[in-house]
Write a protein that binds this DNA or RNA. Structure first.
Lengths: 343, 343
DNA sequence: CAAGCAAATGATAGCGCAATCATTTTGATC
DNA sequence: GATCAAAATGATTGCGCTATCATTTGCTTG
């Protein structure tokens, strides 16, 4: 790669080129970009003109290397096709964008092994902060993160031994509360539909199981799950098999998320099962459609966007040393009672 | 920042540290990581042991700077909360992840100005490829991209003067085809509901308008739009005002997307308007719910995931010089005829 | 077993920028 | 206008890695 000593040949325009055109030193150009308040207006103008003229774009890799500041926040979520995570992401982007950080987003496909690989990728970018989903890391990944000393927020659920910061809510409690709600409405034989069975769904199902067991209302046949990803179609299928397995002796279905719940609801309509008279359906996540479908769908609402916002703010506060270590925040949840469980 | 000459003091472990422990030269460690086939098995093992022992994580910024290869693909989409874009994104992640590229994702909020800012951010990361949405760039942004000589794919729509590569479909044609479909089913007074009014929605509405005008069936009162983001709620509201403005003399509604269509459908149910007998509703994008809602919703299906896959593949092929310049791909679309337009 | 070549390994230099410290210029003050 | 502090600007160096080219080692072959 022999080339003319002072650039110009292969098109790459560097800070040195700008400096030469503006007749200042390179470090002054650097200041115009990064600390403009330290440069006189006259020089700033001159340099800016040169930058525009040359179409100079700073090389972030060189900057990161020299300054040990990357401006990157790594985010790991299990799925891009789940509105739950994209809502959180919106909150993260909102705050991080405004604060001038770039977001490097990776998709772990609900796999801790994949997650470990992705975390290595993120760490190699020298991120200034990390936001990762849940607490289901491989031991190696956990070690990696703890050793990294990078501000890290684990989101979506409450953890007993978080790596650093943690924000979420209790899925176990939510599961139990849904059962309480349904029991309060007079339903007794409450089924459960779940898919993908990630750690958070498993906590919900444990909350559900515990609440029913305490009243001697639990039976294994009340639960229908699938390892496949959630979808409306799968919700319909699981609903049908749940009804079949219980020979109709079921009067409520708690669905692990709203996609499944909509599938169950639409399937019930086709099966001419009256909702909520014959059967109640309760979802989880409170996606927009829940409030508008007929009958409207009871669901568990969580401030996902707010969780993303808060997670991002935690990172930024941590970077400014404005936080006690190991901050943990419970976002709570609210059961939005609608027609589908109101007999 | 004075410190011990050879690291060790502040925790950052570099390739030199690994080299020292493994008793090889730094460049050999680099090879073990990047070109393992060029290193003997014995040395590879020794080095790998040192890497594991030290918990070494390569510094990607240094690597990018030295090699002029970042491994980053920049992606700009207008919104994170729209399943249309997250579907495309899934396809992009699928291919790029498998090929070892990282995706730097930015959100332009449907604003060309924001987009220009974001493109500058992306360019400063020396991306090896770019995927951006549509052709509505600011002149400055357009220049920036053309001058960059970075493989770029503009997605979602077909453009007459693409920056580099282009993959999408004709929204104009789709709009006109929906009108043809509705006319074919015997509907005559066809309304339009649109929101956000981005360039693609505007093309759909032009296709709709043109198709109706050619038959002298167009009237301005048939169109209800809003600059707000699409939502089920907004779909319901626009539907109501469209019905009111036309005093019921409307027999079909073409909705710019499925969120609006679902809102219209649910609202029609509440207003006791029989779908499709009294009124047809057609959506756009064919989201999963369209097939399952009752009555099922006619919608325009596009291979979004496939578009993302293809866009990513175009970038990779372009990087391998396996492509003619300015490749353009029409993904086409299919009107999924369902009950909501079948009187 | 020496010649010849490929495979494996290493020495050197520099990617583009900012931290650090040094120097110059400006402005305030009496 | 001399003195001093503060503001503005610059020279040097190195961040951690890889491209390039040089050297060494191992291996084939007559």
């Amino acid at each position: 790669m022999k080339k003319a000593k002072k650039s110009g040949s292969d098109g790459k325009i560097t800070l040195v080129d700008v400096a030469r055109i503006a007749a200042v030193s390179p470090i002054t150009v650097s200041r115009v970009i990064n600390q403009p308040e330290k440069v006189s207006d006259a020089v700033k103008l001159k340099v800016q003109k040169a930058i525009d003229e040359l179409g100079y774009i700073p090389n972030q890799h060189a900057s990161s290397l020299a300054s040990a500041r990357s401006g990157i926040i790594g985010v790991a979520i299990p799925s891009l096709s789940n509105v739950v995570f994209t809502d959180v992401l919106r909150g993260i982007y909102k705050v991080m964008g405004a604060a001038g950080y770039k977001v490097l987003l990776v998709d772990t496909h609900y796999s801790p092994l994949e997650e470990e690989k992705m975390v290595r990728t993120l760490l190699s970018q020298s991120p200034e902060g990390l936001i990762i989903t849940g607490g289901d890391q491989t031991p190696a990944c956990d070690q990696l993160l703890r050793k990294s000393r990078i501000p890290t927020v684990q989101i979506m659920e409450l953890l007993s031994n978080p790596i650093d910061m943690n924000i979420g809510f209790s899925h176990h409690l939510a599961g139990a509360d849904v059962v309480d709600h349904l029991l309060g409405k007079g339903y007794r034989r409450i089924g459960f539909i779940g898919a993908r069975m990630d750690p958070r769904v498993q906590q919900r199902i444990r909350g559900y199981t515990q609440a029913l067991s305490e009243r001697n209302l639990f039976e294994p046949s009340l639960v229908a799950t699938s390892p496949e990803p959630s979808s409306i179609a799968l919700g319909g299928a699981l609903f049908k098999s749940l009804i079949a397995a219980n020979e109709g002796r079921i009067d409520a279905v708690f669905c692990a998320n709203d996609d499944l719940a909509l599938g169950a609801l639409f399937e019930a309509q086709r099966m001419n099962i009256a909702i909520p008279k014959q059967l109640a359906i309760c979802g989880f996540n409170d996606i927009e459609a829940a409030a508008f479908v007929n009958p409207s769908l009871t669901s568990v609402a969580v401030g996902r966007y707010e969780m993303g916002v808060k997670a991002a703010e935690l990172i930024i506060q941590s970077l400014n040393q404005q936080l006690p270590e190991h901050t943990q925040i419970d976002m709570g949840f609210v059961i939005k009672q609608r027609d589908s469980t109101n007999r």
